[in-house]
Design a binder for these strands. Structure first.
Lengths: 146, 146
DNA sequence: GACATATAGTTGTTTATACAACTATCCAAA
DNA sequence: TTTGGATAGTTGTATAAACAACTATATGTC
């Protein structure tokens, strides 16, 4: 018997991801206001390239939980914006290694500040130990389903 | 001073909604396997109509946190699938009242069971009091940003 | 009653996601 | 060395979200 029987109505928010949608929308608005001309999805790709530059599209798929066509098109758009460059790997010519341009490197600091600011607004008034529990629960959910 | 300063990396999952994305993908797969020919987004509209039939598109916007064009097109698609019908209101002819068809009424029980089952899988191993805290935190996040 | 303004819904455009089908390259086993 | 399977990436198609611009109807005020 499950101990997790949901009351109606509680179910809806969990499935639709109300909270993360609200965070993403707020972050997008802040990017726009700051004149940062990137979508949240593009930013999420840059985010991983800032951590490690020159990784393959497949590694970006794994890091961002997207499928290959999604990454192909995000990289297409980032390339069009001159924020990344595809360089086909010498070691394995099936692979594209994705490199940040100087322009993208300049976005890092400002956009990360805006992201932190957004999360602080989102979590205002929530005690740290409750944030911790929430994060752990969401991680378990992800692990249960992946 | 904020007590919610995020360590790098924690930030990412919150913004991208990894957990709710995983739930939605699992639910969609289960719908497909069961031969339920609806998307999660369409289901989320039906969900509110099952609670109250014959509401306006604007009310669906509020209930589902979507903008008007999104609801216009979801209702377009639901109408094409013969799951809902637009009926223009006598009282205010700007409004469309959206009514479930018999076919949509038949989907309710099975799809709600699948949704509950999915959430139970997602939350397996999470004690109820931690689910409660998680829900409260996500609600505060939403309220902080809306 | 006429007009300004607000509200309900639609359409156009861009970006993104999911799935299936495809091409190119790599690698291992016969 | 050939061949068959696996892997990396692309393309086609359908659905959806966000934003701006639009039409039609309602309402409050003069």
């Amino acid at each position: 018997m499950s101990n997790n029987h949901f009351r109606r109505g509680e179910l809806y928010s969990f499935i639709t991801g109300k909270a993360s949608t609200a965070i993403a929308r707020r972050l997008q608005k802040k990017f726009n206001s700051a004149g940062l001309n990137v979508t949240i999805e593009q930013w999420s790709v840059l985010y991983h390239l800032w951590k490690q530059d020159g990784i393959s599209q497949q590694e970006l798929c794994n890091a961002t939980f997207r499928d290959k066509p999604s990454i192909t098109r995000l990289v297409d758009n980032l390339e069009r914006l001159q924020l990344v460059k595809r360089v086909s790997s010498d070691a394995d010519r099936r692979m594209n290694l994705i490199y940040l341009t100087r322009q993208a490197q300049k976005l890092q600091e400002q956009s990360m500040e805006i992201a932190e600011e957004t999360l602080n607004e989102a979590l205002e008034g929530v005690p740290p130990e409750r944030i911790e529990i929430c994060k752990e629960v969401l991680q378990i959910v992800y692990d249960n389903l992946k």
